[in-house]
Design a protein around this nucleic acid. Structure first.
Lengths: 200, 200
DNA sequence: GTCTATAGTTCGATAGAC
DNA sequence: GTCTATCGAACTATAGAC
C-alpha cells in the first residue's frame, strides 16, 4: 500500500517505513507534547529530528500528511493502552488513570485543536474519538453492570469522568489546582465502590 | 492612567479609549471566537476591523498588548454574567448554563491555549481563572448548603460540572455528541434537586 | 536518498512623511 | 492619527544537482 493519499499529479517520490520517516514522526509528536500543535512546523520538526527541512518533504507530501501520521500513531497507541487497562485488576480505576494521565489528556486537547484547524486530519480524529468513546462506554457498561442504577447510565458517567480528567490536566499545566483534590476524592469513592467486585 | 505597560525606551505614541482601539479589540475577539487564538495576527485583525495593519501598532505596542486587552475584556464580561446568574430564580442552573454556553466554553479553551503560549498574558488569565473559580465555589457552597452532604463538597461538584461543560462544548463543535445527552440528564437531575428551595 | 538553492507567503514590528 | 514603505524572520513547498 503506497502513500499517495490525495494529490493531482503526484510529482515527487515518497518512501514508506524508512527509519528517517519515523524520526520525523517522533520529533513531531515530541513537539506536540511539549509545545503544542502550533509548534509543529517543517523547520522545527526537522531541527528536533536532526535532519534537513527539505528532507521532510521527501517523506511527506505536505505538513498535513506528517500530522496525519502522528495522529494515527497516537490513536493506535491509545487503543492499545485501553485494552491493557481492561485487563487490570481494577479496570475502572485503570481506565480513569488512562484518561487522567497528564500525557494523554494533554494530547486529547491538542487533537481537538488539530481537528479544528486541519481539514485533512479532522475526519481521522473524529472517527477515532467516536470509536474510543464507544469502546469505553461498552466496557464501563459491562463493568458496572446494574450497580449504578438507571439514573446513572454508563455513557453519562463516562462523559463526566472524561471531561473532568481533561480539565484537571489542562488546569494543572497552568498551576491551577483549586477544587481538584475535592473532585478527585469524589471520583475515588465512586471507583472504590464500583470496582469492588471486579471479577465477573 | 496611561498605557505603557512595560518597555525599555517607549519610542512610539499610544492612545487610550479611542474608537479605533475598540474596533481592533472587537475584531480580535471575533477572530478568537470563530477561528481560535492562532488566527489573531496583526494583519488579520486589521483586515477584520477594516483598518490598516500599521495603525494597530499605534494603539498597541505589541500583539501581546492587544491580546491582553481582549483577555481582560472577556474576563470582565464573564464576571458580570456570573453576577447576573446569581440573581436568577434558579441560580445553580443559571451557573450551569453560563458555563456550558458554547460561546463561553469555547473561550475558556482558547484562554488556556493563550496562557500556554503567551508569557505576557499568562498571569492575567491564571489570576482571573482562580478568582472566578473561588467566586463560584463560594456561591455553590452557599446555594446547596448542607444538602449535598460532606461526601460531595461544593468545590468538587463545581469542578466536575466545569469540566463536563467544557468538554461537551468542545466535542459538540466537532460534531461529537456520544454520551452528551446522558451526562446532561444526570446534571439536570442534580440541578432540579439542588435548586428546589432556591430562596434562602 | 540527501543535498543546495530558492520561490512565494505571512508574520511582527519600525521609520518617517503627511 | 493615518498613511506608504520596508526590514528581517519564519513559514510551506518545489526544482534540480549529486
Amino acid at each position: 500500500m503506497k502513500k499517495k493519499t490525495a494529490s493531482p499529479p503526484t510529482r515527487r517520490m515518497g518512501a514508506e517505513d524508512s527509519k528517517q520517516r519515523v524520526l520525523f514522526i517522533d520529533a513531531a509528536e515530541e513537539l506536540l507534547r511539549s509545545e503544542g500543535y502550533v509548534a509543529i512546523s517543517a523547520r522545527q520538526v526537522a531541527a528536533k529530528a536532526g535532519l534537513k527541512t527539505q528532507l521532510l518533504y521527501y517523506y511527506f507530501r505536505t505538513m498535513d500528511d506528517l500530522i496525519l501520521a502522528v495522529v494515527k500513531r497516537i490513536n493506535e497507541r491509545r487503543l492499545h493502552r485501553f485494552n491493557e487497562a481492561l485487563a487490570a485488576p481494577e479496570p475502572l480505576r485503570a481506565l480513569w488513570e488512562l484518561n487522567s494521565d497528564p500525557t494523554n489528556a494533554t494530547l486529547s486537547a491538542e487533537l481537538t485543536t488539530i481537528a479544528t484547524h486541519r481539514d485533512a486530519v479532522r475526519a481521522e480524529i473524529i472517527h477515532a474519538a467516536r470509536t474510543f468513546r464507544a469502546l469505553q462506554r461498552d466496557a464501563v457498561t459491562r463493568l458496572i453492570g446494574k450497580r449504578a442504577g438507571k439514573d446513572f447510565p454508563a455513557a453519562g458517567l463516562l462523559m463526566i469522568a472524561t471531561g473532568l480528567a481533561r480539565t484537571l490536566v489542562s488546569e494543572s499545566s497552568l498551576g491551577l489546582t483549586d477544587g481538584h483534590a475535592e473532585a478527585r476524592a469524589i471520583v475515588d469513592r465512586w471507583l472504590h465502590e464500583l470496582d469492588k467486585p471486579a471479577k465477573r
